[in-house]
Simulated assay, not measured.
Amino acid sequence: MKLDDVRREYLQKGLKRSELDEDPVQQLEKWLGEAANLELTDNTAMTLATVDADGQPSQRVVLLKQLDQDGLVFYTNLNSKKAQDIKANSKVSANFAWLPLERQVKIQGVASRISNAEAFKYFVSRPRNSQLAAWASNQSQPISSRQVLKNAFEQMKSKFSDGEVPLPDFWGGYRIKPTLFEFWQGGGARLHDRFQYTPSAFGWDINRLAP
Results as ranks from 00 to 15, higher is better:
Pro57Glu: 12
Lys81Met: 04
Leu64Gly: 10
Ser144Cys: 08
Trp184Ser: 06
Phe195Leu: 07
Arg60Ile: 08
Lys13Leu: 06
Leu78Thr: 13
Lys82Ala: 06
Asp68Asn: 10
Leu3Thr: 06
Arg146Leu: 05
Ser140Arg: 03
Gln12Val: 11
Phe202Leu: 07
Tyr122Asn: 12
Ile114Met: 01
Thr50Trp: 13
Tyr174Val: 01
Pro24Ala: 15
Lys16Arg: 07
Gly172Ala: 11
Ala119Asp: 03
Gln104Asn: 05
Ile114Asp: 10
Asn129Thr: 01
Glu19Gln: 14
Lys177Trp: 00
Leu3Val: 05
Lys2Ala: 05
Leu67Asn: 03
Pro100Phe: 13
Leu99His: 14
Ala35Arg: 12
Asn89Val: 10
Gly187Glu: 06
Val25Arg: 08
Ser90His: 15
Val148Tyr: 09
Lys82Asp: 08
Ala45Tyr: 08
Val61Arg: 08
Lys87Gly: 09
Ile206Met: 02
Met1Leu: 04
Pro199Ile: 15
Thr179Ala: 09
Ala97Pro: 02
Leu67Asp: 04
Val25Leu: 07
Asn95Met: 15
Ala111Leu: 07
Gly188Cys: 02
Lys2Asn: 09
Leu32Gln: 07
Gln155Asp: 07
Ala201Glu: 14
Glu164Trp: 00
His192Gln: 08
Glu19Tyr: 07
Gln185His: 03
Gln104Thr: 14
Ala210Cys: 02
Asp162Pro: 02
Arg126Tyr: 00
Leu101Arg: 10
Ser112Asp: 11
Asp85Met: 03
Ala134Gln: 02
Gln185Ser: 09
Ala94His: 04
Ser58Gly: 15
